[in-house]
């Protein structure tokens, strides 16, 4: 069942435009089409200069985070039927990072912040003598399951008012990735990560606006993860 849908897209070409501006595109689409499908149609048949990132098209690669009707979402996980298509649908780049072109922003700061929290497994103790796996109970594994789901799309961090105001705040995504290791029973660098996150650019900058949790396309309970990190810093315990 095709219907006419109008997208109002914030366009910006640094080689031509002094300022970003909106352009409108009307396409025929199915209610089950994703915003990404609509963007692809526009690019294919109306305006090949429209520029956005995409790859997997099913919510696992994290390329296509953008603001859709004012909310950070993945274009590939947002179906038209979940939006009011009787009105224009507004599509804009995520906020808080430098614009590059149209819906593309420069992710350098985002990944730099990620790298600040030592987002990798650290355990220099000898490996099991039989060469096999380090043991971990299903309960220990479950402790950090939620934060292993992060796809580094940036939807959370670029929905955070604190991050908008100051890019030096590591942001919710970096804290989620720190949490994934802090609460992993096999890891040995929790204290160092907690020290980093107790600092000026760390968790205490969070004002619990909950924007991050609402924005997460993986439904990670981000605010809860941040609270757990705060508690670990305050109590010095990892339970």
């Amino acid at each position: 069942m095709l219907e006419k849908v109008t997208l109002k897209i914030l366009r910006y070409n640094p080689e031509k435009d002094a300022q970003p501006h909106y352009e409108r595109y009307t396409v025929e689409a199915e209610p089950t089409d994703r915003i990404l499908d609509v963007l692809e149609k526009i690019k294919a048949y109306q305006d090949g200069t429209l520029t956005f990132r995409r790859s997997c098209a099913h919510g696992i690669c994290g390329s296509c985070a953008m603001r859709i009707n004012g909310r950070n979402r993945l274009a590939c996980k947002t179906l038209l039927k979940t939006l009011d298509t009787s009105k224009e649908i507004t599509v804009e780049p995520i906020l808080g990072l430098p614009r590059v072109k149209d819906l593309i922003v420069d992710m350098t700061t985002f990944f730099d912040n990620y790298k600040k929290v030592m987002p990798y497994f650290i355990n220099d103790e000898p490996l099991p003598e039989d060469g096999r796996e380090r043991l971990q109970s299903p309960e220990e594994r479950a402790r950090f399951d939620d934060t292993t789901k992060c796809i580094l799309c940036g939807a959370c961090t670029t929905a955070c008012p604190t991050f908008w105001a100051d890019n030096s705040y590591v942001g919710p995504s970096a804290i989620v990735n720190a949490h994934r290791f802090i609460f992993d029973s096999r890891d040995r660098a929790a204290a160092e990560r907690l020290k980093i996150l107790a600092g000026d650019s760390g968790v205490f900058r969070c004002r619990t606006a909950f924007n991050c949790t609402e924005a997460c396309p993986r439904e990670i309970k981000i605010t809860k993860a941040i609270a757990e990190v705060k508690r670990a810093i305050i109590t010095g315990r990892l339970d």
């Binding site: 490996l127 060469g131 796996e133 380090r134 043991l135 971990q136 109970s137 220990e140 594994r141 992993d184």
Partner: peptide
């Protein structure tokens, strides 16, 4: 087996048996 253990040693969070194995 060696490669899967190597991934585990790099921190890969495999699901676990009740005994704590992969």
């Amino acid at each position: 087996p060696e490669l899967v253990y190597e991934l585990e040693h790099m921190g890969l969070p495999f699901d676990r048996t009740p005994e704590g194995r992969i």
